[in-house]
């Protein structure tokens, strides 16, 4: 029990995080890129065309992972918000500051790919159904996290307000997830669930798994790298950052 508390405390130290994360960033970048290259090649060149959608279904290999990950990034921000509100852990706020812009770009990517997928398959790029609208709300929530932080000059007050917004906004995640079941929509229900066999053909499933895993790993690397930037910004006057710069001068 003591060791868990010890790890928790050490993870809360910006200095420990900065020194320990350098190799992780490189490894996650390389692993994620490899997964994305394999998944994209498989999805574009080897997977058979869909019976109804033809080759336009290959947009799924970008749309589904980016949409899923955008939701997960927001959920992680909410967990970090909870940790900040309860324990005032600085690194939890660093995580939200680093992850919010990444989540916004992922949401934009999922919306853009959805529009470009909708054009050939639905005959329209945008419908105001619950899934699309709730993902648009997710984008505004990410923008809100970024804007709120910039609007409040005092770091601790900004961190607290952003954490509360992250917690409140998490109600949107189950709405996105279940929107295809609760409301009438053009979106199809989930093809992969934890409880049932996937309804997607195996030859089409594998590239999706590679791309999803690759994107998860790559984005983990990006968020870690962005957290390192945030830590440096906040700690630049401290002795341990000065030690790093002194070692760079030698």
């Amino acid at each position: 029990m003591g060791s868990i508390k010890d790890v928790f405390h050490r993870m809360g130290s910006p200095r420990f995080f900065y020194h320990g994360s350098s190799l992780w960033v490189r490894g996650l970048y390389i692993g994620g890129t490899l997964g994305l290259i394999i998944g994209s090649f498989w999805g574009l060149a080897l997977a058979p065309p869909d019976k109804y959608q033809g080759d336009s279904f290959r947009i799924m290999y970008i749309h589904v992972p980016s949409a899923h990950l955008a939701e997960m990034v927001y959920f992680a921000c909410a967990v970090a918000g909870f940790v900040y509100v309860v324990w005032r852990m600085k690194m939890a706020d660093v995580f939200i500051a680093a992850a919010a812009p990444v989540g916004a770009i992922l949401t934009l990517l999922s919306l853009a790919s959805g529009i470009l997928w909708g054009m050939p398959t639905w005959g329209t790029g945008w419908v105001w159904d619950m899934r699309t609208t709730s993902v648009l709300v997710l984008l505004f929530l990410f923008f809100g996290l970024i804007a709120l932080r910039q609007a409040i000059p005092r770091l601790d007050r900004a961190a607290y307000s952003v954490a509360i917004l992250a917690l409140v906004g998490v109600v949107n995640i189950p709405i996105i997830k279940y929107s295809v079941e609760w409301f009438t929509t053009l979106h199809q229900p989930a093809s992969i669930t934890f409880t049932n066999e996937p309804t997607i053909e195996t030859s089409m499933l594998w590239p999706l798994l590679f791309n999803t895993t690759g994107l998860y790993i790559f984005i983990a690397g990006v968020i870690l790298a962005a957290m390192r930037v945030e830590v440096l910004k906040r700690e630049q006057a401290t002795e341990w950052v000065r030690d790093i710069t002194r070692s760079m001068q030698r």
Binding site: G54, S113, P120
Partner: peptide
């Protein structure tokens, strides 16, 4: 891409840039 090349390659292009 069976006539859908513009859509498919645009998505992959945007993703690579992002």
């Amino acid at each position: 891409m069976g006539g859908h090349g513009l859509y498919v390659w645009s998505v992959y292009g945007i993703s690579i840039v992002a």
